[in-house]
């Protein structure tokens, strides 16, 4: 089982396919993929902390709402995610603790403006060797 993600080709937007051994891995990798599109995550420090709580109508909805929240933290609050020490899932909601850095235009180059994480073709499912998910961002 290879954990991680790959970029899918999509004419107008960017699609991301994610693998994880557990649901926590899957959600963490997805958030990292999103931040990697925005900036060079290796350059980030992790001194700032955040806790997010997200709910969804089903697993796909939770998946997208969670990623929307990660994106909002950057777009609305200048928070760039470095690491996720833990995600607690309960039924159709989650609580994630996040570590990251405050965006500083002098230190962090932004590669792509991401307008939004879309619901288009969003999917999460369990596979024989873990979890698999897809999401598409509008750039």
């Amino acid at each position: 089982m290879v954990m991680g993600y790959r970029i899918l080709d999509h004419t107008a937007d960017i699609g991301i396919e994610v693998h994880g051994a557990t649901l926590t891995d899957l959600f963490s990798q997805a958030a990292f993929a999103l931040v990697d599109l925005l900036t060079d995550r290796a350059m980030l420090t992790g001194e700032a902390e955040r806790i997010i709580r997200v709910a969804g109508a089903d697993l796909e909805d939770l998946w997208i709402n969670y990623l929307r929240e990660i994106l909002y933290l950057f777009n609305g609050e200048n928070f760039l995610l470095k690491d996720i020490p833990g995600i607690k899932f309960s039924e159709l909601s989650l609580e994630a603790s996040l570590l990251g850095a405050s965006y500083n235009p002098r230190r962090h180059a932004i590669k792509t403006e991401i307008k939004a994480v879309t619901y288009h073709r969003a999917e999460v499912k369990q596979t024989p060797d873990g979890w698999w998910g897809v999401f598409i961002v509008d750039v």
């Binding site: 109508a57 796909e60 909805d61 709402n65 879309t118 619901y119 288009h120 073709r121």
Partner: peptide, 22 residues
Amino acid sequence: DDYLARMVKHSGELGFPLPDRQ
């Protein structure tokens, strides 16, 4: 983004299935 999320949340009340959540 705000209104899409709100409408996705209530899409069950529309009375017809959406071919795509977006």
